[in-house]
Amino acid sequence: MDATILLTVNGKQRKVTTDPQRPLLDVLREEFQLTGAKFGCGEGRCGACTVLVNGQAVHSCLTPIANVQGKSVVTIEGLATGEKLHPVQEAFLAEEASQCGYCTPGMVLATVGLLARTPQPTDEQIVAALDGHLCRCCGYTNILKAVRRAAQPAGRG
């Protein structure tokens, strides 16, 4: 039986009537045409589908749409302000942290989630936060550099 779910996506009120068990990832991609969150594994082991729900990084492929009723979802499309990129996006550009780029949205959002709760993470904290994210181009070193760069307060480093 379909259910009607109300949620905020990238600051906008959205409504969807659908199977409540349908993954958030499918709803974002198919109903809202927000294809920035990627399907990678469907088992929560690659992080490509990561979005922020109430500021926390979650696997949208494992999150039933019913679970985000009334919550605020931010996808990679909602991170920039107009043409102005989010500092984490800027850091990924500056460090050439994308190769094929399929993992990038998940990596960026996980970093945003990490820095929101730990603004000055140690390398161990960065690795712990990102170890659920795979990059098969294996651009891990540049991604780490990007996260470190994003974590630096403005004017330092």
Binding site: T35, K38, E77, F92, L93, S98, Q99, G101, P105
Partner: peptide, 17 residues
């Protein structure tokens, strides 16, 4: 990398997109 901005904004459409 050419096109890198679209990779960090999610604007690039991969085949599955």
């Amino acid at each position: 990398r050419a096109g890198r901005r679209d990779l960090v904004t999610g604007a690039h459409r991969y085949p599955s997109d």
